[in-house]
Design a binder for these strands. Sequence first.
DNA 1: CTGTTAGCGCTTTCAA
DNA 2: TTGAAAGCGCTAACAG
Lengths: 337, 337
Amino acid sequence: MRARIEDVAAAAGVSMKTVSRVLNNEPNVREETRRRVQEVVERLHYAPNLSARSLAAQRSYVVALMYDNPSRNYLMEIQVGVLDACRAQHYNLVLGPTHWGTEGFLGEVTGLIRQSRVEGLVLTPPLTDDAALLATLDGLGVPFASISPQVQTGRIGVTLDEHAAAAEMVTYLISLGHRRIGHITGHRSHGGCAWRHAGYREALARAGIEYDPELVIAGEFDYESGVRTGGRLLDLPERPTAIFAANDDTAAGVLRAASLRGLEVPRDLSLCGFDDTPMSQQINPPLTTVRQPSRAMGRLATLELIKAIRGPEAGRMLRVDYALQLRESAAPYRAPR
Amino acid sequence: MRARIEDVAAAAGVSMKTVSRVLNNEPNVREETRRRVQEVVERLHYAPNLSARSLAAQRSYVVALMYDNPSRNYLMEIQVGVLDACRAQHYNLVLGPTHWGTEGFLGEVTGLIRQSRVEGLVLTPPLTDDAALLATLDGLGVPFASISPQVQTGRIGVTLDEHAAAAEMVTYLISLGHRRIGHITGHRSHGGCAWRHAGYREALARAGIEYDPELVIAGEFDYESGVRTGGRLLDLPERPTAIFAANDDTAAGVLRAASLRGLEVPRDLSLCGFDDTPMSQQINPPLTTVRQPSRAMGRLATLELIKAIRGPEAGRMLRVDYALQLRESAAPYRAPR
DNA sequence: CTGTTAGCGCTTTCAA
DNA sequence: TTGAAAGCGCTAACAG
């Protein structure tokens, strides 16, 4: 039926081991032999049996992408990048949905590692900042790369300066003339939340605007909490003229809250978010927000992970750039009616 | 290090084969023996080596989810369902991104099948309706299940009556008093497009409203085409008072087009979409649309596929229900200003 | 109902 | 630079 390595060896007039060496790019093969083997491989449409390879080499060539229900769009972007990197490096990807915060969470992760003989993990928020998880993985000796972790010291992965991004966004609002700027934070468990808040504070401080706790409300990174908390901000006696929401979903909710109160964005309220989800361009008006290169982040984190799997002490924490997306939802200050 | 089946056998005082039988739920094991083996399995944290199993059994236990860049949300929902089913049936999932319509497309699919020894495929639109692909798969003898195929005869998978859904949606608009109802179709290559259009026509016919080709424009299932085609409809001398867009992204674009013209939804225009993406609730006003149970569709299609893998002649085409989501974007007819 | 034996297709070790 | 032999951990076929 299907060609085996033995068939290739016979057809090329070499031993199995030599074919194996060619397949795995090992040294100690004469260039001519190498070419001859490769020709036969193509002619026979030979594809190695991955199960046999894994069994013999005692390796799975599998990495897992661990997540817990973040925004679907965000995760899908990450996943595309991770998958790209896996294919390029001849690794397989296994998907690892988990229920973070539940009792069985750690078991879900270790179970997957055991079951699938996973060689390394790519972690996404909020898993990236779960100390117990990181300790467990360290204990097991399973390498992992984190995407946007809050604490980065000595870890592998890729991160983005959310503090600077938030500060830049708020500075932009200030440059438009706004001074009463509200902020809706994300869910406390999520790393980015604290950083975005800190960036907000810093921008205010740099501009000499006093921090007013009344203007900061805790949201939950979703649309509903945006409607609710945005409403509270807009119902303030002296309402903000601009709001910086901790992510796009929340901002969409604020937009709704404004609309329900007869306020128009950006005429009566400037609004901005974070993430640049596709939705942010499809709402009306299009949302000013911060773009993070999720796909590249997935790809880079995976590449670093695979480096770490291959060579201990390899793999670094990379930093990627954000980019402000200035769209119609934020406009120059106008005195409230 | 890690327990092998041999260790389990020794600890339980039985043969390897008996352990294997218990693990694979095969018959011919005394109930007491079965329990004893299971205890040891748990005690030793034994997890079978999947590579060894695949190699020995000459089976991969892998199914692939094939797709080509549909809406990220839609795909993610499908994927969650597929993954659920895979786990429940002890199958592994491999992701199969493709570039449909390019020269190398068929090679991408067959390459994946060879490389990963895939036992079956789950196909999503628009791959579901690619005759050449289906013929190739039939030729290879690889079973597949389609999600929402246009032609269903003799195939396996899950489908939804898009014709009826579209008709019901348009009938709803008519019941609100609208008679000049525009329709923006999807991309021709996508199966659903023709059906939704047919449903639109039927609803008009049933209500005795004449079909006006001027009110039907070809879109491309995305936001930009919605802005463009929606604009053209709204610029008509006698503009429609309602528009049925072939999907939510397009509808969002129409909303934008209306806004750019100073028209308010639903006051000046009733609008509805199809898919019920999360975005549809986050735009302003929330969008009336058709919900399809994507997650369940992914799960059911996968289960049928696995049935077909296990027993030839097994596996059917299932039909699932849609549900109209009536939200604020559609309202009773008001004469245009 | 249970056990024994012989591979599955590859890589590893060691020798040439 | 190359090759021969010995497994990796499991299941299939057959015996008991």
